[in-house]
Amino acid sequence: MSETSSNPRRALSRALSRIANADVAETLAQQGAVPTPEMSRIGVTGAPGAGKSTLIARLAKLRKGEDHKIAVLAIDPTSPVSKGSILGDRIRMDAIADDPNIFIRSIPSRRSHDGLADNTADLLAAMEGHGFDEVILESVGVGQAEYTIRTLVDTVVLVLLPESGDAIQAMKAGILEMADIYVVSKADLPGAELMVAEIQQVAERQTADGWAPPVISTSRNDLEGFARLDAAISAHAKWRKARMDETATQRARARYQAQGLIARRIDEIMEADNSLLDLDPRGLFDALIAKLNPSRRDA
């Protein structure tokens, strides 16, 4: 269906669906010459139920303005059984959903296993292309989301639950090295203070290039914590702009996107002909490589 609509939000919304549903060939065909404007991107990650959506709602409300339009891309997991999903992030953002300066889109993770969704990079670029000044990305809180989100956004906010043991858990998984800002959520619950102190100790040791990751505690009914987070994000964005290696950032994003497309293309090939899977590993590998470029072979 057409993406032209008298209603600009509908046009954007349609464009996002087209991008989200595009297979590999369509995705490649759609790669426009339009350069991505340099907008700031905030990534929010953390375990399931950590309070990411609740935090994004508060944060978007603080940061938005007539001249600062905010788009939220919220990813929830696809059920591996039915391939369906309950996109439940939005319900925590109800308070901001009516704001004309905020746009929220929920997306299922589909086959993607990295805490993001198929074509996330293109979805972010499309939102930026439609005049949003800032995009907030909520990852699915599982697996290696912390690593991949790093390549696609400018500022990574890691949300941690104030449960004892969570700090150790996070250290083991190595995710504590990935964040620019730590948030200990649900500070109204017991354990938050201890958690903040623990994370602070870890964070102090990882001052990289002059950025010392702050540790902020938030509680959903106390705006002050979110105001501190808002200020910390702005400070990080400013710091990053001053010293960002644009080439390295673009290269990391190009690499992530290419890897994702090739992985999906291989999935498509195996789904189209699953007798390939009867080959031994070497044979399967060679067959897949050969099939990655069918036009050349068939010519």
Binding site: S13, S17, T78, S85
Partner: peptide, 28 residues
Amino acid sequence: LRDAGADVIYTGLRRSPDYIARVAVDED
């Protein structure tokens, strides 16, 4: 509906028709 394969969004209680229509548009 999720079990039948759909991507389902739920808005919560007591939403106005206007609000529901806006969410329907934004979520396409």
